[in-house]
Amino acid sequence: MKALGRAFDTILNVLAVIAGVILVSMMLMTVTKVGMRVVMNHGIRGVDQISGTMMVYMTFLGAAWVLRKEAHVTVDLIVAVVPDKVRRIMHVTSSLIGAAACFAVTWFGTNAVLLSLSRQVVVAAELEIPRAINLVVIPLGCLLLGIEFLRRAIRFYRGDVPATKPSEI
């Protein structure tokens, strides 16, 4: 079980690195496009569209990792002031709600990807890319996020975590 947890953490870390690489690539791609427009009077077709797709990938590849770091925005107004026992119940419950919502998106997202593939839907923009390419990372990211929510529920249930404060930015 421990080993499985470590393996999962490794996956999240690797995906976080990919998300970071995507972030930097978005910047470099756009700068290159502008550079080429200045120098050669011609940019690169499709950069903006690919940037849009990269936004989705960055978000969903990084989502579970961000939860692992307790860095998703939460309103801890009530959570911070209730007795420890109630706080634990609230944390476990909210984690389970999160897990359920994410698994639902995983399920419906997978359906959406399959449906999009079977309908051969493409994005009608500069580059005609199958819409499924954009969509597929949503169920994937939500599956990982859902699993991380379950782990979080267990962490809070056991009291492994100091029960408040998300990391400050």
Partner: peptide
């Protein structure tokens, strides 16, 4: 042409 993606 809004249909371009769905009904090629």
């Amino acid at each position: 042409n809004y249909w371009a993606g769905v009904v090629p």
